[in-house]
Write a protein that binds this DNA or RNA. Structure first.
Length: 778
DNA sequence: GAGCACTGC
């Protein structure tokens, strides 16, 4: 038994009688262990026909098949751990399915190891590097893409960013020609698809966490299904954590012949679940009581309590702390100290870190031990894992986004969670040892009232952006696109209508040149439009700043004990014309003060948000340069703010409100919603016409981030949208009529014959007006 | 006179 060497050596993947790594492993002292042909452990493997034995033997070898360097002791240590993962026991099952099918569905519960192992299994079988391709594995969140890539690079004994890398917005840790396993956010792969519609760089695409049904994952699923028809060489793996596998199988196969499924058990501890006997009228109250009950009566172990938002959480924390102290005083022999910590996304990172602190020890040497209680939003359900949690309190609610296409408003509402979500929450109690989950609803409600799955995002969102992306991806028929769950036709119509008004689509529904450029910007269509048009108003530098500032979380801080000081600081930076202008002003001042954190802090500004804005601004500026859009500012100081307001109108003319009556009420144009200026609004007067960035529905309808506009600009730059004929009778219409009369010197009459159909371009910019004049001149 | 559930490009 001896190894053969082939004349071609390194490039002999696929030949039959080549060096057999299986034998090399079995007989380490034989000649087979020292192949002559380029020392390639992968030699002789046939892509996508690799067996588990072959793969495992290479993993067990001495030479890293991808770097050709000796494998490190650390690699071997990690490998022993990997082999104990549940998914490893099914490696041959996986290869059987992978070799024979184009699309497979995989479900693996928490702790199965699927996210780290399956992509590696693919590497050993697909051998993407031998054909200049890559394996992509998508994640819904950036941190996951980064941390998993780092872990897998270590497991494969390679440097992160070389053979194994990741790509997220603002950071590409890959090396062209070297990287063959790439973790990335789902949004990033969708972006790539826009310029490479067949995803030709990839030989295998893995969609991980598909059960989360993010907008990007949903679009990618439809896209991949289509690409698979035209690319027989592309393999697709859809990985999910839930029991809803059949839905994925049917979608990727057919109802009669579902796509094959691989099921891998998880590795978590049992969680005992308790329900209430009767529904709880006040879930916050009940949650607080339950947490205190656990602290009083249950064995040591930390508590995780789910609530819906910042205010609720801070309030609950205060009450739990106060009552726990009473409890401790009353029962000093049995009740230890309780450390109650809040957790939500907008909490500064330093505060967030507190959830990882150890529970407090006993106050006296032989007193009862302390306990930690984390009160969190949904962030602890998927994004953040806290070790040591033994008790979960689940009131059964979540704040979630819903979209009403009729009035074009996205709002946040507190709603019951799904069964899948409830299970995920309960699972958080069993990560380190057996735990308990207290559900603050009845078992009957759980069985009968809760939806199986969380409503996918695509059914809850404004789709203007998504529709533009789909158009750019070449999808012609948006209504009949193969969605796993189709959005309401009205939502799609609303999106098409907006894109048509923005001149991203022509009247036939085709993507225009403007639309093609807009799709490249990681911004809402309205924002892309105002930005692309802004050089014509000599304010592209400012609009760049504004789009960045509108893309990041609120920059204005208002600490509870310093509200007055914060308001004074804000007023000092405010521009009278409106909040959009103030945002530009804040950023410009931030630059003038040399990006100084101390300056920001002194002015009650969120440093982190400002830094994020810098990041976004740089990215968008590069895009502006790519499309040869001039970066300019006006030198005429009197026009500086006005130009910005005009450019704003070109993008956001559909988000305008008119003042009605005396009570500072506004009526949104066309949708006729009664709205009020949000209390955070910095306008020092109530102008007749305002443009707003956001419509928020909380205690009542508010418009937030508001700037004054002139009716003449509406008529000039958004003539079609503000065509009086399209308005119902009312104060808004009469105001428009007065404006037209004043402008033309002729009283406006409803019956006046039309001067001909205007372009379907709602926003008529100077250049467009000029082009029209030119045409008429000829 | 009130609020950023959570992601992502």
């Amino acid at each position: 038994m001896s190894a053969k060497s082939t004349a071609t050596g390194a490039n002999a993947v696929g030949t039959d009688d080549a060096y057999n790594p299986y034998l090399a492993h079995r007989y380490p002292n034989s000649q087979a262990a020292k192949p002559v042909n380029g020392n390639d452990p992968l030699h002789g493997l046939i892509p996508r026909r690799v067996t588990a034995t072959q793969a495992v033997n290479i993993m067990d070898g001495e030479i890293n098949p991808f770097t050709k360097k000796p494998l490190s002791p650390n690699y071997k240590k990690i490998l022993e751990g990997r082999k104990k993962l549940p998914v490893f026991a099914q490696i041959q099952d996986f290869y059987d399915l992978y070799s024979k099918n184009q699309i497979i569905v995989m479900i693996g519960e928490t702790g199965s190891g699927k996210t780290t192992q399956i992509p590696q299994f693919c590497v050993y079988s697909d051998l993407p590097h031998t054909k200049g391709k890559m394996i992509a594995c998508t994640q819904p969140r950036r941190v996951a893409a980064m941390s998993v890539a780092q872990r897998v690079a270590a497991e494969m004994d390679v440097e992160l960013g070389k053979q194994v890398g990741y790509t997220i917005r603002f950071e590409d840790m890959t090396e062209a020609g070297t990287t063959f396993l790439k973790y990335m956010t789902d949004g990033m792969l969708l972006r790539e698809a826009m310029n490479d519609p067949t995803l030709s760089r990839y030989s295998t695409v893995i969609l991980d966490e598909a059960h989360e049904r993010t907008l990007a994952t949903d679009i990618l699923m439809g896209l991949l299904k289509e690409i698979a028809r035209n690319r027989a060489d592309l393999k697709i793996i859809v990985m999910s954590a839930t029991l809803d596998a059949l839905k994925f199988q049917k979608y990727f196969g057919s109802p009669e012949k579902p796509a094959p499924l691989l099921k891998v058990p998880g590795r978590t501890f049992a969680v005992e679940t308790f329900y209430t006997q009767e529904p709880e009228p006040d879930y916050v109250e009940a949650a607080i009581r339950t947490a205190l009950m656990i602290h009083h009566a249950e064995e040591p172990g930390d508590i995780l309590l789910f609530l819906t938002g910042e205010e609720e959480i801070e309030d609950a924390c205060r009450r739990i702390r106060a009552e726990a102290e009473d409890l401790e005083r009353q029962h000093p022999d049995t009740v230890g100290p309780l450390n109650c910590v809040p957790l939500y996304a907008s909490l500064p990172p330093r505060e967030q870190q507190k959830i990882f602190q150890q529970a407090p020890g006993p106050k006296t040497p032989d007193g009862p031990p302390g306990r930690k209680c984390v009160v969190s939003t949904n962030i602890a359900e998927t994004s953040l894992t806290i070790d040591g949690i033994v008790y979960v309190v689940d009131p059964g609610f979540v704040k979630s986004k819903i979209y009403n296409p009729r009035i074009r408003v996205e709002s946040l509402l507190v709603a019951p969670i799904s069964k899948a979500s409830a299970q995920q929450r309960a699972g958080r109690a069993g990560r380190t040892r057996p735990g308990k989950c207290f559900r603050l609803y009845t078992e009957k409600d759980f069985m009968k009232e809760l939806e199986e799955q969380t409503y996918p995002e695509i059914l809850r969102s404004n789709l203007a952006n998504t529709v533009l992306e789909l158009m750019k991806l070449g999808v012609k028929d948006l209504v009949h696109f193969d969605y796993m769950d189709a959005p309401a036709p009205e939502t799609i119509m609303r999106a098409l209508e907006l894109l048509n008004y923005l001149a991203a689509l022509d009247d036939e529904g085709n993507l225009t040149e403007m639309g093609r450029i807009m799709a490249e910007f990681p911004l809402d269509p309205q924002m892309s439009k105002m930005l692309i048009i802004s050089p014509e108003f000599k304010c592209s530098n400012e609009m760049l700043t504004l789009s960045a500032m509108l893309s990041v979380p609120n920059v204005w801080l208002r600490p509870n004990n310093q509200r007055k000081e914060a308001d004074i600081a804000k007023a000092a930076l405010a521009v009278p014309g409106g909040d959009h202008l103030s945002l530009v002003n804040v950023y410009n001042n931030y630059i003038e003060n040399k990006y100084d954190s101390q300056w920001a802090w002194n002015n009650f500004l969120a440093v982190r948000a400002l830094q994020q804005a810098e990041n976004v601004r740089n990215q968008v500026q590069r895009l502006m340069e790519r499309f040869d859009l001039d970066l300019v500012s006006t030198s005429d100081e009197r026009k500086f703010w006005q130009n910005i307001q005009k450019a704003l109108v070109c993008g956001y003319f559909m988000q305008v409100a008119h003042k009605e009556g005396e009570k500072n009420n506004y009526l949104t144009v066309k949708d006729n919603q009664v709205v009020a200026l949000h209390p955070s609004c910095g306008l020092d007067a109530t102008p007749e016409w305002v443009l707003f960035n956001e419509f928020v529905l909380t205690t009542r309808p508010f418009i937030r981030t508001v700037t004054e506009v002139k009716v003449d600009w509406l008529l000039e730059y958004a003539g079609e949208y503000f065509d009086i004929k399209t308005f119902v009778d009312g104060e808004t219409k009469r105001a428009l009529q007065r404006a037209v009369a004043k402008k033309t010197g002729v009283p406006y009459l409803e019956t006046r014959p039309s001067t001909g159909k205007r372009s379907r371009d709602g926003s008529e910019t100077p250049s467009e007006a000029r082009r029209k004049k030119d045409r008429k001149g000829k």
